[in-house]
Design a protein around this nucleic acid. Sequence first.
DNA 1: TTATTATATACCCGATAGGGTATAAATCAA
DNA 2: TTGATTTATACCCTATCGGGTATATAATAA
Lengths: 77, 77
Amino acid sequence: MTSNLTVSALIKSKRKQLKITQPQLADKAGVGLRFIREMEQGKTSLRMDKVNQVLLLFGMELGPVLVNRKKLTDEKS
Amino acid sequence: MTSNLTVSALIKSKRKQLKITQPQLADKAGVGLRFIREMEQGKTSLRMDKVNQVLLLFGMELGPVLVNRKKLTDEKS
DNA sequence: TTATTATATACCCGATAGGGTATAAATCAA
DNA sequence: TTGATTTATACCCTATCGGGTATATAATAA
């Protein structure tokens, strides 16, 4: 199964795992606190380079992924 | 093996597959021609929403992916 | 070669991302 | 409850993204 987690959800959970606050994450990533917040809140117009600065802390980056074919039960192809 | 194709490479190859020009792709995606060019040339500071507008034409979207552990032969862990 | 077509580069400019900061609202612990 | 901590909202401001357009440089075909 292809997970397809949103950036928003991923960052939030990863940050919680590390038990650090938004200001601390912003600091580590070298981005503004406001950016971390907009990211966790799912803003869609973020700049890729900034997002990658944060994702890289978790060994990840933005890449093209297949759109989630909704649940198998939802529709018949 | 996790492909990890860049957005740039993916768009360029997908566009060629469809045998359409940059202006045509820009048109279909609803973005400017300049944007398509910057995208194919690997500009890193693109806005996610705009990139997704284009990727969606190919059934894809931006998502967090694991950073490529370089080739197995390149380095010893 | 010369046309034709596709792609790249350069400019102007409006819109907005993102930084900073201040304040408000949650959340949690005592 | 009250106080401390974390997160959310709102504002100002600069930098720049991205659209449009014009020009330049391939690239391909005749």
